[in-house]
Nucleic acid binder design. Structure first.
Lengths: 363, 363
DNA sequence: TTTTGTAATCGTAACGTTACGATTGCATCT
DNA sequence: AGATGCAATCGTAACGTTACGATTACAAAA
C-alpha cells in the first residue's frame, strides 16, 4: 500500500526506505510532519522555522505567518522526544499516588484530585502521568526512581508523614515538586493542604452544639500528617469545652469500612458509649452506619454524626448526618498550578495553599 | 504525635519566604550517567555498551558483565527521550478517560480500573499516562490528538458507543489500542469488556425469584454500549418470564444520584409502582435509596433491589440489597496485558476478553 | 603462504529539536 | 567609497540512543 518517498533529497543524503513484509512499526510516527519538511517546503532553514513557531523576535512577521500557516496545513505537532532530548524538559508531570489495595473504595475518594490535576495539567500544556504505589512500595524509593528516570518536569507527592524524607530529597536534587499535605520540617517547600485542624475543630464543635460530650473520632494511620492535624483540632475543641479526652474514643486505622464498623460496634457496646462521632471520611461513615444499623440505632437521634463528604455520598444517604466537604478537584488544580509556577521559576517564592472545608449550615 | 508547624496561614493562598539557594536548573539531569560515560570508563564504544546492556549476542559475555557492573555502579538509567527519538517507542501507555464533571462520585467507580492499569503497566515496564476528557471534549478528537502527539505506544479507550469511529481510526492508523467495551462494527479489534448482558439478565432473574414482576431498570446514556447490553439482558429475562416490557419502568441518564432519586421517586408515586429495581451502579442505588427513604419505604421489603457493587459500598449499607460485582482492578490489568501483546505483535490474533459478574448467593 | 570465516568491537549516521555563532543583504552613517 | 549597524536568516553541533555497515584480530582452511 504505502509508497515511501524520500524527503531527504534536498540535503544530499538520499536513502531508500524499503518496506519489508507489510509490517512496520507505526505509520503515524513515520508520516508525521516535522520541522525539516516545513522548512523544505518554504525554502527556509529548520532554525528559522523552529523560531518562527515560537514567535521568535528574530523572525520577520510575514515569515512567521507563512510558517504557521504551513505548520497548520501539514498538521505539524512538535516531537516531544526531540524537544525533550534537547531541552531536558518533558512537559510531563508525575503524581505519585499510593493506592490502597486493601480497599478500593478508599481510593475512590481521590479521584476528584486526579481529575483536577489532569485537567489543569492539560490546560498548562503538560501531560499527567500517574505513578501509583502499593503499600509494599517504599515511598522514598518511589520518588528516587522518579528522580533518576527524570521523565517528569515536576512531581506531586501525597500522604506526607512527619519529617517526610522525600521533601528534603527533592529539595536537595532541585526537582520541582509540590506536596499535597504538610510535614514538620523546618524548610520552606510548596504545598497545598486541607486545613484538617480547623475542620476537625469545627466538626467537634458542631457535635457539641447537638449536646454531645462523649465524642468519638476516627483517624487514619497515626503517622499521617492529616490525622495528626485532625487530632489536634479535636483536642482544641475539647479543651475549650473543658471535656477531658478519652483515648478509648479515638480510633486509628479507619481506612476500611470493616475496621470502622468493628471499631464503632465495640464502642457502642461499651459501658459508656459515644453520643457523637466525627468520621474520617465517607468510608468511615459507611462502616459506622453499618454498626449502628446492626444495633437498630438511628443516626441523628441516638448518635450524632459529622463526616467529610467531598463526594456527596453522605448527603444522599437516607440518614441525618452533618456534612462538610472540600473541593478536591480544586485542590488538584491548585497542586498543578503551584507545581507549574515552581517549574517556571524554581528560585521564586515558595507558594503554599491551605484549603478550608465547607460546612453545611447547622440546620 | 508530631509537632505541626505552619499554623499561620489564612484561607486561599499564602506566600512564605523564599529559600534562595544559588544553583542551576536541574542538577539531576545534568549529572546523569549515560552510555558515553560508561563507554569511556571501560574504553569501549558506545555501541558495544548499548548492546551489552540488552544482552546482545554480538558482545562477549565477560564484556557484558563488565558493562553491567559499571552501569550499576554509576547508576545508569537509559534516557527515555533519546531512546524514544531513535526507536519511536516511548514506553508509555495512555488511557483516555472521560471524567464526569457533573458528578465526581460516578468517576470514583473507575478508580479500581486506574489502579489495575497503572500497576500492570509498571510491571510491564511502561508508564501510564491518564488523559482525562470532559464532557465537552470530542472523543474522536481526543484520540486524534493522541495519535498526532504519538507520545504513547498504545492507547486505552473506554466508553464505546455504537459504531464507534475511534476503533476504525485507530485500526487505520495502526496504533495499538485496546477498548474497554465493545462496539457493533464488523471488524476485529482487541477489547476487554464486562458481560453486561448476562449481568442484567441474572439481576432481573433474581428480582423475579423474589416475586417481582414490575421491575425497573436504570441505564446510563442510551448510546452507551454497556447500557444497550443491559437492556438486552433485561429484555431476555422478561421475555422468558412472559412479562411484557413497560417502557416507563426503564430509566435513562442515571449517572447522578439526583437523577436516580428523582426518577425513582416519580416511579414510586405512579399508580402502579415497581416492586423490583436493577440499579445501574452504586450511584444509582444511593439515589434510589434516597427516594425510598423519603417515602418511608424499606429496601428488601417494599421494593427489592439488585445493584452492581464493585466498590463494596452497597454491601456495607444497613439495608437489604442484592449485589453483584466485577473485579475492576482485574479488568484494568487485563486491559494492559492485551494492549501490551498488541504492541509486541501488532499483527497477531486479536485478543478479546469478556469478564463475568460475580453474584452473591441469593441468601 | 594466502584466503576465508567468524567473533568481537567500532564508527557513523540518523531520530527531531533547539542553542549559538556565523553569515547574509541592505540601509545608514562617516 | 568604505565602514557600521541591524534585521533576517542560515549552518552546525549537540542532546542520548540505536541501526547498520565497516573494521579489526585471529584462527582455521586452502
Amino acid at each position: 500500500m504505502g509508497v515511501w518517498i524520500d524527503r531527504d533529497v534536498e540535503f544530499g543524503n538520499a536513502m531508500a526506505v524499503s518496506k519489508s513484509a507489510g509490517a512496520f512499526a507505526n505509520e503515524v510516527g513515520r508520516t508525521m510532519a516535522n520541522l525539516k519538511q516545513i522548512a523544505a517546503e518554504l525554502s527556509l532553514s529548520v532554525t528559522t522555522v523552529s523560531r518562527a513557531l515560537k514567535d521568535g523576535p528574530e523572525v520577520q512577521p510575514s515569515t512567521i505567518a507563512r510558517v504557521k500557516e504551513a505548520a497548520k496545513r501539514v498538521g505539524y505537532l512538535p516531537n516531544h522526544h526531540g524537544r525533550a532530548l534537547k531541552t531536558g524538559r518533558t512537559q510531563t508531570l508525575t503524581a505519585v499516588l499510593p493506592m490502597e489495595t486493601r480497599d478500593h473504595l478508599s481510593d475512590l475518594l481521590k479521584l476528584p484530585l486526579i481529575e483536577g490535576m489532569t485537567l489543569a495539567a492539560r490546560q498548562a500544556g503538560y501531560s499527567l502521568s500517574i505513578y501509583s504505589t502499593t503499600p509494599d512500595d517504599d515511598p522514598v524509593e518511589s520518588v528516587q526512581r522518579q528522580l533518576q528516570a527524570r521523565s517528569a518536569d515536576g512531581l506531586v507527592i501525597t500522604r506526607l508523614v512527619s519529617a517526610d524524607p522525600r521533601v528534603k530529597l527533592l529539595l536537595d536534587q532541585r526537582m520541582p515538586f509540590v506536596a499535597f499535605g504538610r510535614t514538620d520540617l523546618d524548610v520552606a517547600y510548596p504545598y497545598v493542604d486541607v486545613d484538617n485542624e480547623q475542620i476537625a475543630y469545627e466538626a467537634t464543635r458542631r457535635l457539641m452544639d447537638k449536646g454531645c460530650r462523649r465524642i468519638a473520632l476516627q483517624l487514619l494511620v497515626p503517622e499521617d500528617q492529616a490525622s495528626a492535624m485532625r487530632l489536634s483540632g479535636y483536642g482544641r475543641a475539647m479543651a475549650e469545652a473543658g471535656i477531658p479526652i478519652d483515648q478509648s474514643l479515638i480510633g486509628h486505622g479507619m481506612f476500611t469500612m470493616e475496621s470502622s464498623a468493628g471499631w464503632f460496634d465495640r464502642l457502642l457496646a461499651s459501658s459508656d458509649p459515644p453520643t457523637g462521632l466525627a468520621c474520617a471520611n465517607e468510608l468511615g461513615l459507611l462502616g459506622a452506619l453499618h454498626a449502628l444499623g446492626k444495633r437498630g440505632l438511628t443516626p441523628g437521634r441516638d448518635v450524632h454524626i459529622v463526616t467529610r463528604d467531598s463526594t456527596r455520598l453522605a448527603r444522599f444517604l437516607p440518614a441525618k448526618i452533618g456534612v462538610h466537604s472540600v473541593d478536591m478537584t480544586g485542590v488538584g488544580r491548585k497542586l498543578i498550578e503551584v507545581l507549574e509556577s515552581r517549574i517556571i521559576n524554581p528560585l521564586g517564592p515558595v507558594e503554599t495553599v491551605l484549603v478550608q472545608g465547607r460546612f453545611e449550615p447547622a440546620e
